[in-house]
Design a protein around this nucleic acid. Structure first.
Lengths: 191, 191, 191, 191
DNA sequence: CATGAATGAGAATTCATTCAT
DNA sequence: GATGAATGAATTCTCATTCAT
């Protein structure tokens, strides 16, 4: 967490790691990362104590980045549907705009070395979305399910949707719209 | 023929690999696998040309195993809903009953070494489920979306659901039931 | 040296070994040899206690084979020159007719595992040629040098000659003839 | 630059390889080489991409070393005989003074992994000797044979001679002198 | 601090040899 | 005897990490 010197260099390494991990998996050698970052092999270790720490840091960074994307312009005052749609749209857009980050995130989710700390740190920025869901549940707008489960459904659906948008880019808009409808129909109470 | 290559031993290795990969990731040393399988290090390579081939074989085997679980007692003559529910229930049950296979499958899905061949081989046993969805789409029972997308939603929802069932086993039945309702509400046409 | 059963099989293995060693070097796996011989991997070891023993046996066999070729029709009663020419011609012809044996012999000569026994066994069949040289030295026909040195020159020249015959087959006859002239001029006393 | 790749270390490894290969053959483990060189096992691979590359590099180095020895003080202005004698003497002296290099060179000549590149690189430093022979052939001093064949004879004779010099060191001088006479008598035109 | 050579603990194979069938 | 699966020691090479420059 301490950044000895240039934040810049740290970010360069993180960016290179994203690229390399996306292509070659988390097992890619650190030398490939430093190579791509244009720094010496040893430099990585002045910014990150170990490769594991680098991966954990990258996880947190990507999660934060994603949260930023989701929350930018979040319509706090609008309807639940509008807010939900905002999250969905921004989530999906982010995934499409940042395919390497998205891929790496997927790989990190099944990685053995993620610390609990990182996992928790990755969740906090999404608090406002949680609050929204809890609200909607309390208002009996959503089905009566624990909030994390709603979030899980959202994530799962969105990720599946993105896969198809990437596979068939010309149908991307359709998948994006319909994916949300499926989710919304699923989680809202049938009057 | 002297000591024929036993399917038994092959399966022992595959089983050990599942266990080890689940615990330690696909990067686990082959020596750990052979150790767990109770065979010599070299023996793995008389059954699989390389570690990559082992992982691919394991992928196919697990997929086949899963398909068997889904299709056992598939109610071909019943309603779409009954058949869908059957698939959901059996999928979720399989995931809960076979947590290591489930975890390994997840890791293999983001692994870089999966061959196209394996990926295709992993899909074929699910043909009948595809057919069912296509049917339901044609009958205008399901929303008008490509069949693979429906399958993707099913998979995504089911996997998310299983995660919660494992996290809160005492709520497992509830998640299982509600998860299906969310899916069903999402993919069926609102009259 | 004990041949458990079929001499035939032993020879098949030896022949296959020649082929394989010529192509891939003495480091070639025994499995490659048994594969080429059409026998099981283990069978090699009922005919030869170890790979080293096989190589030693092959060395002796090739040397014997070569000696047979050199001595076939040896003109015991003719002039030294005629006998020398006979040896040269037959040596060179054998090398050209048996390129794989020739190549393997070369490799075995610099191999670390040749036993003294094999080396000696490989020499004995050439006794008559030695005798001839000793005779020619005593008669002051050859320069006054130790006999083994003469033999060494013969071998060295012949082998160099064969290399060129193989490289330029259309010049083979020329090299064969001239090579002998060079040798003969070199080792005979200038009156 | 941090700790630049030292030519020194590279040479130490090459020297150790020579020693080890001479004793135990080219199949000797790289660990034996690094052990003898006093460096870590991995260090070998920062100087040579693979074991094969190391052997090829060693081949080129020894050939270059030999060429240096042959050409040191080459009497360009003297008679063909003097120049030839120079080559012979220096060749033989080098072989005697550097027995391990000599032995390794022999083994490398029958090795399967020598690249064409290395073989060619090994030849170029001997260009001047070639020129000399071609000259002597053109002047009708040597028998009318292709130059490479003359070189082959020289090499073959010299190597055979060295073997005897090593076997009977007290006769070394005699072998050296007589060996040359045999060669010279062989390749020069009889008036 | 940055650099990249040095390190050495692994890792995946290979392969001679054994031995159950 | 023949077979070929099983064995496990040995080998080459990789790579995270350290540390001299």
């Amino acid at each position: 967490m301490a950044r000895p010197k240039s934040d810049d260099k740290r970010n360069t390494i993180l960016a290179a790691a994203t690229e390399i991990f996306a292509e070659r998996g988390l097992a890619a050698p650190t030398a490939a990362i430093t190579g791509a970052a244009g720094v010496a092999e040893g430099t990585l270790f002045t910014y990150f104590k170990s490769k594991d720490e680098l991966v954990n840091a990258l996880y947190c960074q990507i999660k934060l980045d994603l949260a930023d994307a989701l929350m930018a312009g979040f319509p706090r005052k609008s309807s639940v549907r509008a807010r939900m749609q905002h999250v969905w749209d921004h989530y999906v857009d982010w995934g499409i705009a940042n395919p390497t980050q998205f891929v790496v995130l997927k790989k990190m989710k099944v990685w053995e070395g993620l610390t609990c700390q990182s996992q928790m740190a990755g969740m906090t920025p999404f608090a406002e979305i949680q609050a929204m869901s809890q609200d909607a549940i309390a208002q009996r707008l959503f089905v009566d399910l624990p909030e994390p489960f709603i979030a899980g459904m959202l994530t799962a659906q969105a990720e599946a949707t993105m896969d198809f948008m990437k596979l068939e880019p010309e149908q991307a808009q359709m998948y994006k719209t319909c994916g949300f409808e499926v989710l919304w129909a699923g989680i809202t109470r049938k009057r």
